[in-house]
C-alpha cells in the first residue's frame, strides 16, 4: 500500500528519523515489538508514521498519533530541531496482550527477573473485561525532525485533529522564488 521507498532525498525537514526504541529495547527489533506491551510499566517509545509534503506555502508534516489528547502532546523547537512527544492513555491492560506472557518469559533475559507487577487496571481473570484481541497498547510517541534552512522556525504552527497532528512549516520569505526586474538605464 505504501510506495516502496520515498524517503526524502533532499530538503531535510524530516530527513532524520528518530532512533527507534531509544529506551534500550532488549532483543532484536521484532522481539521488542511483539513483547513490548508486557515488558514494563513505562510505555514503549515509537516514532509516529509521518507524511511530509511540500506545497506552495511550505512544508506540511502529518503524524499519525491516535489516542493522544491535546494536553498529552508537546512540541519543542530548539535550534533546528523539532521534537514531538505524545502520550496515549488507552487505559488498556498491557499484561493481557496477545503474545504478552510468552514473549516476556522467552525473550526478556536475566535483567527482567522481577515478579510481574499486578495489573493497574481491573482486567484479568478476576476482573470484568476479558481481552480477546490486543493489537495496540499505550505508547509514547517520540520523533525528532531536523528543520532545513528553508523553514521559518518562528512561524511553525500545529493542530491536532482526529488523531493526526499536522505541523505547518512555512518557508522563509527569502526562500520564495523572486524574479528580478531589469531596470532600464
Amino acid at each position: 500500500m505504501t510506495p516502496p521507498d520515498r524517503r526524502p532525498r533532499f530538503p531535510h525537514p524530516a530527513s532524520r528519523p528518530a532512533r527507534q526504541n531509544e529506551r534500550g529495547g532488549q532483543g532484536g527489533p521484532e522481539g521488542a515489538r511483539q513483547g513490548r506491551f508486557a515488558q514494563s510499566r513505562q510505555p514503549p517509545r515509537m516514532r509516529p508514521q509521518a507524511d511530509l509534503v511540500e506545497r506552495e506555502d511550505g512544508f506540511h508534516l502529518f503524524l499519525d498519533m491516535p489516542g493522544v489528547a491535546h494536553d498529552g502532546l508537546v512540541l519543542d523547537v530548539e535550534g533546528d530541531e523539532l521534537t514531538v512527544r505524545g502520550m496515549t492513555r488507552f487505559g488498556d491492560c498491557r499484561d493481557m496482550g496477545r503474545d504478552g506472557g510468552r514473549e516476556a518469559t522467552a525473550d526478556a533475559g536475566p535483567d527482567v527477573k522481577a515478579p510481574p507487577e499486578p495489573a493497574p487496571c481491573g482486567c484479568g481473570p478476576a476482573g470484568g473485561l476479558r481481552v480477546h484481541a490486543m493489537e495496540f497498547g499505550d505508547v509514547e510517541y517520540h520523533a525528532v525532525f531536523t528543520l532545513s534552512d528553508m523553514v521559518d522556525a518562528a512561524r511553525i504552527s500545529a493542530q491536532l485533529a482526529n488523531g493526526v497532528l499536522t505541523i505547518r512549516m512555512p518557508k522563509r520569505e527569502a526562500a520564495a522564488p523572486r524574479r528580478i526586474t531589469v531596470e532600464h538605464v
Binding site: 500500500m1 505504501t2 510506495p3 520515498r6 524517503r7 526524502p8 532525498r9 533532499f10 530538503p11 525537514p13 524530516a14 508514521q49 509521518a50 507524511d51 511530509l52 509534503v53 511540500e54 506545497r55 512544508f59 506540511h60 502529518f62 499519525d64
Partner: peptide, 11 residues
C-alpha cells in the same frame, strides 16, 4: 494528502 511527497509512511 495533497502535495509533493518527500516522505510517505501513513497508509
Amino acid at each position: 494528502v495533497r502535495g509533493r511527497y518527500y516522505r510517505q509512511e501513513r497508509p
